[in-house]
Nucleic acid binder design. Sequence first.
DNA 1: TTGTTGCAATAACTTAAAACTATGGACAAC
DNA 2: GTTGTCCATAGTTTTAAGTTATTGCAACAA
Lengths: 308, 308
Amino acid sequence: MDNFTLRQLRYFEALAQHGHFGRAAEACAISQPALSVQIRELEETLGAALFERNARQVRLTGFGEDVAAKVRDILLSADELADFARLSRDRLTGRLRIGVIPTIAPYLLPTIIGDLTRRYPGLDMRLRETLTPRLIQELAEGRLDTAIVALPVSEPSFTEVPLFSEEFVLVRPSADADKPVPNAETLREMRLLLLEEGHCFRDQALSFCNMNSSLPRELLDGSSLSTLVQMVGAGIGVTLIPEMAVPVETRSASVSLARFDAPRPSRRIGMIWRNTTPLADQLQEVAEVVRQSAETLAGRAAGATART
Amino acid sequence: MDNFTLRQLRYFEALAQHGHFGRAAEACAISQPALSVQIRELEETLGAALFERNARQVRLTGFGEDVAAKVRDILLSADELADFARLSRDRLTGRLRIGVIPTIAPYLLPTIIGDLTRRYPGLDMRLRETLTPRLIQELAEGRLDTAIVALPVSEPSFTEVPLFSEEFVLVRPSADADKPVPNAETLREMRLLLLEEGHCFRDQALSFCNMNSSLPRELLDGSSLSTLVQMVGAGIGVTLIPEMAVPVETRSASVSLARFDAPRPSRRIGMIWRNTTPLADQLQEVAEVVRQSAETLAGRAAGATART
DNA sequence: TTGTTGCAATAACTTAAAACTATGGACAAC
DNA sequence: GTTGTCCATAGTTTTAAGTTATTGCAACAA
């Protein structure tokens, strides 16, 4: 087996360079006998003499010269590894895999991508948009580093940190703009358009009306908030969308917005990660950046809602 | 400073591969706590977590994956070094720098180059032809590994091994073929052509006649044995050449050869190397190959002399 | 020859590193 | 709860690497 050590290779390089045991030892900050022993052991492991010692000088053998070239290569790679580690230390770097639910992703991502790359230059951000159960699964399997979802998730192996709350806004045809704002009960009488099954936002909306997802209802499910708003604009029914979606989704559709009276429906959005992730500290930082991005966005959204 | 060890890198690779401390430790033939400690120390040296440990599995972090790639590279280079050493062990390999004096080189080299490359495939042989003093200097300085010269050299720092003796043959014009063979005294009366100063063979020839090199003589010095023989052919004088040169140098010239009566002039040819060279064992082997090459050559030379 | 000097090797010993066994604590599964 | 798996920690022993002191060899000057 080849059990020489990196230390021996460093000593070897020093001796090859200085051609003198005493000075090479000094350069390595060890005593001359220590160097002699390590060089001898390296020669024994390799099975051939690396140096020719004579009374006036220490010189590499032909074999030693060949070895020296390879040793330089190894030590260079080792130093590069150390450098790489030093540069990565205490810094969020390399790959960061973030999962986001579909009712957040289109509105929040454009902002946070910019904010995060600005905050962490050189970060290789990989984004995944899918439904909560899959995000949870991928996070548990280590295929994601973190996810932005609606809280609570209640997985004991995950840490949750709240980011913000967002209220739900009623979207109804422009014609209804002057009608009174319905409450949870009256909403149940209306034709409520919802996202298809699996979206957490669907359940959150239903829960506001105290309705059960699995009850037989006359339903028209949309695959995205955008679709739902278009359907409302066509006079097919009403829907709820999260506040954050308002500026994007109601820009071009002829619909009217209405805010509920208290208790207003809302949901809490947060970040989750594995309890065991070594990135916990850095993810706390990321959460803070996301929180601020969302705050900025909410300000704009509120403005948009007010104008409508 | 970066003081991780190759051992830690090997353990790291095993753990990255197995994803399980117990099994990785087994693969490394150490106990599980030993592995845990070494991995922890590697992580401390690098300043960041390499693995995420949880109850069911051990998984590389993003940083760990980057490190794993670099570690593979380092370990590969280390293994290559070990392989290279193992292949070189006990085998004459790589560069071998041989010096030869000019009165031997043209006759011996063609044969021994062939014999040595046949005997040591992959040997990178580098030949140097020059006068003895320079060979000695270059050998002492480590710019040659060995030299083939006339013995004795009497350098206490060199080891000498005899290869063979060769007699000197008188070369005289064809017209003199039937004259009696001169002895040392009568030779002194003839016009003796010699190599220029610096060639050991010049001194060896002179010493046979009990003449001093520095004595004022009517001389015509040649720069090679070939030149001398041509001059003899032109009737300018007589010369001595070593037996080994006979087949090559007298092939085309119209000269006659004569062997002296006892005591015949001769010289001993041998190989020398630094006492301290680690190649001593291999050079002994080389000497044996050269000796046999010379023997073959001498047989042919004797045949040629007889025929003339 | 005979010190003397410079330098690497060796010896004897100490300190540091790495291994072992035994045990503890977290967590998932039953 | 209880059990089993698995990694971390503790305490101890073994091995590796370093120290100082000394020896031995070769070169050089007297």
